[in-house]
């Protein structure tokens, strides 16, 4: 009896390792190791043609060894902090707009008859079926100077004597595409939260004297906070690191952290500084995630 029980636990443990092992190994090799390499690289000098300078070199005039120079450089010029702050506000604006647009949609889906819900969710995720870049380039056409939208806007502005504006290559273009691309990431967690709400709670609130507005703010909204937090994290964090959308739709002044990092590796070939920027971004994201967990944590226990 004990023996077979013992065998059973051993078999169960083996199965656990066999199932959990490969993904764990995958993460270790492809996430943990590169992260460590990145941290180490940030303390090195850049190589002459990209890559890293050697740790030791025969010629004392070549750059070599370890340094804190990249970190000093990061804090020596406000421009980098400014890009971080700009990226932060872009991510915040995207998250807020996504939330405001996604909430009514998620509520609508959650309140629809069950048989229609799957179709509606499918429609929300349908844009994923086409390539990300193609969807972003589509905005180039929509916002381009010859587009119907541009002409409508400029005709309207002309009526009031204002000079024409360029929609494309502007922070506005970046924001609109950011919202467009990330909206489903807000809708889905919100929907999956709202769908689980017990409808009898709203009956109870109404029965006890709450009007429609009060029912929403006192019952539905507070109960949906966990969904709001996870949706916001799924939008905020990727937007913070996004470089493709500002690259394609932004002007020269619309550089975000993602563009800055990409530029270090591909443009100026300064790997150590690129690594430093990445580490700073990771720290910022972790800080925000920690703050969100602190804010959401004590309210999330009933979910």
């Amino acid at each position: 009896m004990t023996d077979s029980g013992h065998k059973h636990t051993r078999a169960a443990r083996l199965a656990k390792y066999l199932m959990g092992g490969p993904p764990l190994l995958f993460l270790l090799l492809l996430f943990a190791v590169p992260s460590v390499i990145m941290v180490l690289a940030s303390f090195r000098y850049p190589g002459e043609f990209g890559g890293l300078a050697p740790l030791t070199a025969a010629d004392p005039n070549t750059l070599q060894g370890v340094t804190l120079e990249t970190y000093q450089f990061f804090f020596s010029d406000l421009i980098y902090i400014k890009v971080f702050i700009k990226s932060f506000f872009m991510a915040l604006a995207t998250t807020l707009i996504c939330l405001i647009m996604a909430y009514p949609l998620a509520l609508l889906i959650a309140l629809s008859p069950k048989k229609n819900r799957n179709l509606m969710v499918l429609m929300v995720i349908l844009p994923f079926a086409s390539n990300f870049l193609i969807r972003v380039y589509a905005w180039m056409i929509i916002l381009g100077p010859q587009s119907v939208l541009s002409q409508l806007v400029n005709n309207f502005l002309h009526l009031f004597g204002n000079a024409p504006v360029h929609l494309l290559f502007s922070p506005f273009a970046v924001l609109i595409a950011m919202v467009y691309v990330h909206l489903p990431f807000m809708v889905l967690p919100l929907y999956s939260n709202l769908e689980k709400h017990d409808p009898s709670l709203l009956d109870a609130a109404q029965d006890l004297g709450a009007n429609g507005w009060q029912r929403f703010w006192r019952v539905t909204f507070p109960l949906s906070l966990p969904g709001i937090f996870s949706g916001s994290a799924l939008v905020f964090i990727p937007v913070l690191g996004m470089f493709a959308i500002p690259d394609i739709l932004g002007g020269t002044g619309d550089m975000l952290i993602g563009n800055l990092i990409k530029e270090q590796f591909i443009g100026t070939r300064d790997w150590p500084f690129g690594s430093t920027l990445s580490i700073m971004l990771t720290i910022a994201v972790l800080l925000i995630a920690w703050l969100a967990a602190k804010l959401g944590g004590h309210r999330g226990h009933y979910a």
Binding site: S200, L201, D203, A204, Q206, L208, R218, Y302
Partner: peptide, 27 residues
């Protein structure tokens, strides 16, 4: 319903899970 001086005790109780006992009762 919200204006009727009639209250209901539901089969599932329908207590608000994000409110304490005191908050539920004072709702």
């Amino acid at each position: 319903a919200e204006k009727r001086p009639i209250h209901t005790v539901f089969q599932s109780y329908a207590l608000f899970p994000h409110m304490t006992v005191a908050e539920n009762i004072s709702f």
